[in-house]
Nucleic acid binder design. Sequence first.
DNA 1: GTATCCAATATCGTATATTATTGGGCCGAC
DNA 2: GTCGGCCCAATAATATACGATATTGGATAC
Lengths: 233, 233
Amino acid sequence: MADDELNVAAASPSKSQRAYHWIKERIAGQDFTPGYRLVLRTIAEELGMSVVPVREAIRRLEAEGLVTFQRNVGAQVSMVDDTRYRASMQALSVLESAATALAAGHHTAEDLRHARQTNERMIETLSDFDPSTFTRLNQEFHAALYRRCPNARLLELVESEWARLAHLRESTFSFVPGRARQSVREHEHLLQLVEAGAPPAEIEKASRHHRSATLDAYLVHEHPDETLGLTAV
Amino acid sequence: MADDELNVAAASPSKSQRAYHWIKERIAGQDFTPGYRLVLRTIAEELGMSVVPVREAIRRLEAEGLVTFQRNVGAQVSMVDDTRYRASMQALSVLESAATALAAGHHTAEDLRHARQTNERMIETLSDFDPSTFTRLNQEFHAALYRRCPNARLLELVESEWARLAHLRESTFSFVPGRARQSVREHEHLLQLVEAGAPPAEIEKASRHHRSATLDAYLVHEHPDETLGLTAV
DNA sequence: GTATCCAATATCGTATATTATTGGGCCGAC
DNA sequence: GTCGGCCCAATAATATACGATATTGGATAC
């Protein structure tokens, strides 16, 4: 996504790209929920283009895992069962924790201020229970911490994994109201580590622990060795 | 890749998929080196199909990062500068180390035997200096250790990252002959940890250390905090 | 000799048309 | 009444065609 903007600047994005972003938005915005069938001609007509660019867009989304293709049948928004969801969360944990650890030392004062402010807004949101806003702020908080990671590839992977989980966002926190309160406390801890200039290893450990706790909060792990923690217990 | 086979069984893969695999093979096999320009019509003619399926294949490869598209100009095999190479290696380190750690306890005796045998064949190869074979065996050794990772998503990401680095394989070890000898020693150590049923955290640490040492061997790091090690120093 | 502009060409981007495949409904046989 | 095969509608997969855009090489002016 960042690529596109860099490559072609503002020079009229191709139809294929417009279709890509349009569909992606729709998936992220829960208009197209998992299992929704993406009919090429329908989408093409809606966007006022032919099916070819739409096919390309869907192919790209397929490669990113948001869409599943079935030969001669069509495309649909990827179904996500419990196993896949956990797998993606674990992958995100591994990737984002590493990115956050590597970002340490590259943050500006503004970054940290923004992170803190975001977390404080999350605390405010706790009373009027609004999962949607809370989730958005949560994503923003995490992004503030990993964004300065100097490894561009890791950043790409983290963003991609977030997108993969995007169409499940709503459900992430709505199940466990009590968990939200603990989550912001963990954010506070993580933020303090970063501010204090803690060693990357420690930051990574804390980040993984946070993710692990989040997932554990509403999923029973039948295989304890598959825990998100890895190095973090 | 594994998906395809599962989905459509042996039912005549689509032209688009044939093109995808064909191009990917060519890139992995160094027929198409970084910077090589992929002309749609040329490839289409060579494969006896029209340009549309080829476009789709290239789009998919673009999403995977093997190919770079430039609007109204065309596609070329991705150029990889030093920064990107290091970034990918670091991402691979993070992903594969996690996968390997999670695979612990899921290995069969056969898996470990195969890994050991592969490493022994690497030792034999040390005398007759053959980077190509050595690299292939190296990849096989690592695959044997992470393959049983129960997290399918992590596996996908690891494989994808390997593919991304595939067209640079030859260069990976050819620069530092002396490094190869140390590499097999580290393999031995890693293998012993796995066999002894060491805790995942320890395996992950060792795996990262191995990657870190490999990269350090021939790259000068201007930013020490970007080291591959993270938790492993 | 070098820089700039323009035209020719190669190649892409998209639309339209054609073919192939699938899935469901209908009908007949048992 | 149910099972199995056949036919048709919907849709994807591919081919072809045309318009749009960037790159090039050469000619001209300085």
